[in-house]
Simulated scan of single mutants.
Amino acid sequence: MKKEGFDFFQNRACEYFPCHKGVADEDFNCLFCYCPLYLLGDECGGNFEYLPNGIKNCSNCTLPHCREGYAHVMNKYLLIAERIRKKPRCMEA
């Protein structure tokens, strides 16, 4: 995959780098340090689990941190926008 310059970032000075196992250090992308897909719940496409208390645990997910992850996240942005779009007051129930 060709790097465009805006689709890959590393912060090797971070005390947690790399924060997930399963991606080679040279391919580890820190761009989405906090995953924007978290709010999509089970529609994010990543490897997650729900803990007994209902919290989504993404510690086994490398999707936003691999080189292909940028394209996946960008392809989900319309769904994210749909979820957070504010409805006009006249449409609220």
Results as ranks from 00 to 15, higher is better:
Pro18Thr: 13
Pro18Arg: 12
Cys19Trp: 02
Cys19Thr: 00
Gly22Trp: 04
Val23Asp: 08
Val23Ile: 14
Ala24Leu: 12
Asp25Arg: 12
Asp25Val: 08
Asp25Pro: 02
Glu26Asn: 12
Glu26Gly: 01
Glu26Pro: 00
Asp27Trp: 06
Asp27Asn: 15
Phe28Ala: 06
Asn29Cys: 14
Asn29His: 09
Asn29Arg: 07
Cys30His: 08
Phe32Pro: 02
Phe32His: 09
Cys33Gly: 05
Cys33Ile: 05
Cys33Phe: 12
Tyr34Gln: 12
Cys35Leu: 06
Cys35Gln: 05
Pro36Phe: 03
Pro36Trp: 00
Pro36Thr: 02
Pro36Ser: 09
Tyr38Arg: 01
Tyr38Trp: 10
Leu40Val: 01
Gly41Ile: 02
Asp42Ala: 10
Asp42Asn: 13
Glu43Gln: 15
Glu43Arg: 15
Cys44Val: 01
Cys44Ile: 01
Cys44Ser: 10
Gly46Trp: 07
Gly46Met: 07
Glu49Asp: 07
Tyr50Gly: 03
Tyr50Leu: 12
Tyr50Glu: 06
Pro52Ala: 11
Pro52Arg: 08
Ile55Val: 14
Ile55Asp: 13
Asn57Met: 02
Asn57Phe: 08
Cys58Pro: 01
Cys58Trp: 01
Ser59Val: 08
Ser59Met: 11
Asn60Gln: 14
Asn60Trp: 04
Asn60Met: 13
Thr62Ser: 13
Thr62Asn: 10
Thr62Tyr: 11
Pro64Phe: 03
Pro64Ile: 03
Pro64Glu: 04
His65Ala: 09
His65Glu: 09
Cys66Met: 14
Arg67Gly: 00
Glu68Asn: 13
Gly69Cys: 09
Tyr70Asn: 06
Tyr70Lys: 02
Ala71Pro: 00
Ala71Asn: 12
Ala71Tyr: 10
His72Ser: 06
Val73Ser: 04
Val73Pro: 04
Val73Gly: 07
Met74Ala: 13
Met74Asn: 03
Met74Val: 13
Met74His: 03
Asn75Val: 00
Asn75Asp: 11
Lys76Ile: 05
Lys76Arg: 15
Lys76Met: 15
Tyr77Lys: 14
Tyr77His: 09
Leu78Thr: 06
Leu79Tyr: 02
Leu79Gln: 14
Ile80Glu: 04
Ile80Met: 14
Ile80Val: 15
Ile80Arg: 03
Ile80Ala: 09
Ala81Phe: 13
Ala81Asp: 11
